[in-house]
Amino acid sequence: MMTSLQLLGFGSGGWGALLLLGALITLAVTASALAIGAVLGALVAAMKLSGRPLRAAVGHVYTTVFRGVPELLIIYLIYFGGSSAVTALGHALGFEGFLGLPSFLAGALAVGIISGAYQAEVYRGAYLAIPPGELEAALAIGMSRRLRLRRIVLPQVIRFAIPGLGNVWQLSLKDSALVSVTGLAELMRTSQVAAGSTRQYFLFYIVGGCLYLILTSLSDRVFKGAERQADRSQSAAMIGRG
């Protein structure tokens, strides 16, 4: 019988290294999802802000569906649906049998699609928070559409979006645990396998949970720091006024 310390250690029969690897994969899934979601979210936010009824409606459906349907269901959709698509493609190219979508890809894509729905709302809110007068001043000085976007809109959207993005990151970090259903050996799945094969359920779920707590509180710090950095102009003003 191994002691708890040995079970969690890095020696033979210890799960320490695998758990840490799992935590890294969790971070990688979440980071990829954030990037995928940033692209989708920016696109959907632009559609919702476009002022064109059809595009706005498509954007609205996207955010309603992917924020309103259980994450697990969306992961099934991407994993099984994606695998069917890949299998069909494989058959067309002459491969036999069932081909799976790589679980990392499926997981990052699914969490990314969900993240995109939340990010779209963050970007939309951030855009609407730009004082309209500042956009008008950019027009008045003769800035082209591109230049306005690059010099006035994007820097401000990014600044206003940071707190919201921090929340989305935390959400995605926790959503990524559901990717374990595809068999990807991220932190949740590794804890599950360790718990099952050692029969030490309580120990491994507690340790897995603690690792998640470390991930969420560390990333919380990172985002708070970024927020302070980006808010320099604002907080400097408070000191200046005082």
Binding site: K174, A177, S191, Y201, F202, I206, G208, Y212
Partner: peptide
């Protein structure tokens, strides 16, 4: 609040479902 908001619901659920029976 820190613990239940900071960790995924799934791991909490497994802890309750599989973990408690261990004792």
């Amino acid at each position: 609040i820190f613990v239940f908001r900071g960790s995924p619901l799934l791991i909490q659920m497994f802890l309750v479902f599989y973990g408690l029976g261990q004792f």
